[in-house]
Design a protein around this nucleic acid. Structure first.
Lengths: 203, 203
DNA sequence: GTCTATAAATAGATAGAC
DNA sequence: GTCTATCTATTTATAGAC
């Protein structure tokens, strides 16, 4: 591949990523992507065969990047559970395009089947970063914790962080719902982390 | 309006509701809706002016029904906080079509603006049933609780219930993620309710 | 109110010149 | 690899007969 073709390919992916996130798969046309990426219309199909392939590729990369970044963050900084989750929140609202795309896709019957039946099925079992949250909990708790308790805590924490991230970018910003500033959300994430750790220790 | 036209209108809404939820707004064509509803193509635009209007109408009705059902449930049965939330969970997974549609729409920049700028803006501030959860918490706690604590608890509980409902219908069913049976989820909702009430009482 | 027919625009994909 | 031009199919919406 020449340098130019690599640049064209990445320009397409970058433009498509944003458009798909904002308008969905069917709501975005190949022509729109090409215009936004400032490349020729035909180059999209030349590089990605078809529109669906481009979409799948964007999601695959986004999920991988997300998981890897979360893992790297944990390995490098060795943060406490609550620090880790606040980092995840900030990562999610910064990379909200991929997050929202992934969520939309999971909620779409057709695409989730298409996604699961592909090779990426293994990688997509469980939330991105789920394993990291587990490890952070285990580090603070020691090993004396049942699998059921562990899964419960991860689901509570992850659902709260992901929900907060999504709402932060679509509702909390526009409306004046009380206690939904960024500082409020972070405070809430820390509080829930502490509450759950206390609960796990008391079992 | 004649009986026939009322039936046509409701057949269109019922078919469109399901198709929109599964395929999104742009992913669903008017012809598809008409075929599925077993009515003529032109009747869709005759009754709803255009496709976007039909979508907005479906969401408006869905949100209203959802809020009213939650309010009625609380007023009639006067359940405990954890019973109420389990009821919400069961309601959400039963009516997952509307729920998913509403969520998709909120996550779509274009549509959320369109939705908020319309008259339904007031009704859509805050989650459906949010006020009811507040009341259930206050009933168990007495009045000595700050607004910040109250909002925190509502957001934790609602995000957990809504996230569980969505995941239950798109991931938990297909994959074999541990501790995600319906009974497990309900158990988790009850547990989180109790944990949060204990936290609020200790403040 | 319901139907057929059709207008007008746009979609994804590809062929072939360069 | 990139471009223009175009094919084919499908879209929303509407006009007009019944």
């Amino acid at each position: 591949m020449t340098d130019q073709s690599i640049e064209t390919k990445s320009k397409i992916m970058e433009a498509a990523r944003i458009l798909f996130a904002n308008q969905g798969f069917e709501g975005t046309s190949v022509r729109e992507i090409a215009t936004s990426a400032d490349v020729n219309v035909a180059s999209v199909n030349y590089h990605f065969s078809n529109k669906e392939n481009l979409f799948a590729e964007i999601l695959r990369i986004g999920y991988l990047e997300c998981s890897q970044n979360m893992r790297a963050l944990y390995e490098n900084e060795k943060p406490s559970l609550e620090d880790l989750l606040v980092h995840f929140f900030n990562y999610f609202i910064q990379k909200s395009h991929d997050l929202v795309s992934l969520f939309k896709m999971m909620m779409s019957t057709q695409h989730s089947h298409h996604l699961m039946s592909q090779g990426s099925g293994d990688q997509l079992s469980g939330p991105p970063g789920g394993k990291v949250i587990e490890e952070a909990i285990l580090k603070e708790m020691g090993e004396g914790i049942s699998q059921e308790d562990l899964h419960f805590a991860v689901r509570c924490l992850f659902s709260h962080v992901i929900h907060s991230s999504i709402m932060f970018n679509c509702c909390f910003k526009q409306n004046k719902i009380p206690f939904t500033t960024r500082a409020d959300i972070e405070k809430g994430i820390r509080r829930l982390s502490r509450i759950l750790l206390i609960d796990l220790k008391n079992i």
